[in-house]
């Protein structure tokens, strides 16, 4: 059994977001982090490794520096990494991205008891689409928003699938895909042992040439040309003018605020 975890390197939105004058993101000036929900998917996989001794492979699509993130995940406990990287893959929307990652997973091979895991969504695009679309392209069943995962020994998993107002318990055959939410677990830290060993483990690079014979890879299904959606325009919303700062002592200010709320019919 192996768990393939799909991860993404994203700009850190808890810091300042830098936007270039043309309305696109100034990625170069922002710190990158591992997408937070993806860490929960990695932790879920590592827990299964602790229990069953299965292999954990971390996969990302991105530029060559993303290898560093894969090394960090190996230092957490993953066994190896795969970096899908190539100019031909650039400009992909979620449809084309999932096509390429699915091809990468096919290239690795998926056994009967394997599981693909993803984070719920990435904080740069917030689409939550790539996970389900990988599942579709690999013809796998999926469960999104997993709040609990239990692997049975009989080729099935039982997943608690969260909803806004409750949850479902669902039994699913493997191989399958699961997307994980942060309530699922608390990700572990890298271990000292892991940090020392992480450069001895393998990170394979899959470029266009590696994947070009996979049935999913076609110029019409990858990159800009393979993306059904186009960006018409991107823009920044107008800054809302800062409001009024109340003056006076605490009592005066609390009284003024209460009267403002009264005028707005809140009270």
């Amino acid at each position: 059994m192996k768990i393939i975890v799909c991860v993404k390197q994203v700009p850190d939105t808890s810091g300042k977001v830098a936007v270039k004058p043309d309305g696109t993101l100034d990625r170069a000036s922002m710190l990158t982090i591992i997408n937070p929900d993806d860490l929960n998917a990695v932790e879920a996989a590592l827990k299964l490794k602790d229990e069953t001794g299965c292999e954990v492979v971390v996969v990302t699509m991105g530029p060559p520096p993303a290898e560093r993130m894969l090394r960090e995940l190996i230092a957490m406990g993953a066994d190896r990494g795969v970096l899908i990287s190539g100019r031909e893959f650039g400009g992909s929307d979620t449809f084309a991205t999932s096509q390429i990652i699915a091809a990468g997973i096919q290239h690795m091979g998926l056994d009967k008891d394997d599981i693909v895991m993803c984070g719920r969504q990435a904080i740069d695009g917030d689409t939550a689409q790539v996970g389900p679309q990988i599942a579709e392209k690999l013809n796998l069943p999926q469960i999104t928003y997993a709040g609990d995962i239990e692997v049975k020994g009989d080729g099935t998993v039982i997943v608690k699938r969260m909803l806004e107002d409750g949850f479902m318990n669902i039994k699913m055959k493997t191989p399958c895909l699961i997307t994980c939410i942060k309530e699922l677990n608390t990700p572990r830290y890298m271990s000292t042992y892991g940090i020392f060993g992480c450069y001895e483990k393998t990170v394979d690079v899959f470029d266009y040439n590696t994947l070009k014979d996979e049935p999913l890879i076609d110029p019409n299904t990858i990159g800009l040309q393979g993306s059904p959606t186009n960006i018409l325009i991107s823009f920044t919303p107008p800054l809302k003018g800062a409001g009024r700062i109340l003056e006076g002592d605490d009592k005066e200010r609390a009284t003024e605020l209460a009267h403002i709320l009264e005028k707005k019919h809140v009270i």
């Binding site: 936007v19 904080i123 740069d124 959606t229 186009n230 960006i231 018409l232 991107s234 919303p237």
Partner: peptide, 17 residues
């Protein structure tokens, strides 16, 4: 739709499909 936590907005079209 908003991206990057609403710092950036984008208008998307699906022109060919």
């Amino acid at each position: 739709r908003p991206a990057f936590g609403g710092h950036l907005m984008a208008t998307i079209i699906c022109p060919r499909f």
